[in-house]
Computed example of a mutant assay.
Amino acid sequence: MTESPRTIHEVIDRYNAAFRLHDPTLLEDLIAEECVIEDTGPAPDGARHEGGPACLARWSELAGNQALNFSTEPADIAGDLAVAPWVLRWGQGKNDWVRGVNLIRIRDGRIVEARGYVKA
Rank of each mutant, 00 (worst) to 15 (best):
A75G: 05
E3G: 06
L62A: 15
Q92G: 11
V98R: 06
E38T: 10
R14D: 02
N95P: 04
S71C: 09
Q66G: 05
G46V: 09
A54W: 00
M1Q: 10
D45Q: 04
G79S: 06
E33Q: 12
R115V: 04
A67I: 09
V98D: 00
P85D: 15
N102R: 02
E50K: 04
R105D: 06
R115L: 07
P85L: 12
A54Q: 02
R6P: 01
E61I: 07
H9R: 12
E38A: 10
T40R: 04
V83G: 01
A18C: 07
W59T: 09
V87D: 07
A82K: 02
V36K: 08
F19A: 08
T25Q: 10
W59L: 14
D39M: 09
L103S: 13
R99M: 06
P24W: 03
L103Q: 10
R6L: 13
G100L: 09
E28A: 15
D39P: 01
A67D: 12
P5D: 06
G93Y: 07
P5G: 02
Q66M: 15
A32K: 00
A84V: 01
A57D: 15
L26K: 07
D13F: 05
L27T: 03
W59V: 08
H22K: 14
I8A: 05
D80W: 01
N95T: 13
E28P: 04
R89G: 11
E73L: 12
L27G: 02
S71Y: 08
G91S: 09
D108Y: 01
D76P: 00
L62S: 11
K94V: 14
T40Y: 01
G64I: 09
R105P: 00
A32G: 13
P5M: 02
P42S: 04
E28L: 11
I31H: 01
W86G: 10
R6G: 04
F19G: 03
I77A: 08
V11P: 05
D76F: 13
L26H: 03
E113H: 13
S60R: 12
A120F: 13
D108Q: 12
Y117C: 14
D108M: 03
R110H: 08
E10R: 04
K94H: 14
E73W: 07
I31D: 00
V101Y: 07
R105I: 02
G116H: 14
C55Q: 01
G91Y: 07
R110Q: 15
I77W: 12
A114S: 15
L103P: 03
T25D: 13
D13K: 14
E38Y: 10
P5T: 05
D13T: 09
I104E: 00
D96K: 12
C55N: 00
A84Y: 02
P44K: 11
R6N: 03
G52T: 06
N95Y: 07
P42T: 14
D108G: 01
W86R: 06
Y15E: 01
W90S: 05
A17M: 04
Y117A: 14
D39K: 03
E3N: 03
A17N: 04
D45V: 00
Q66R: 15
D76L: 15
T72L: 11
R89I: 10
R6W: 03
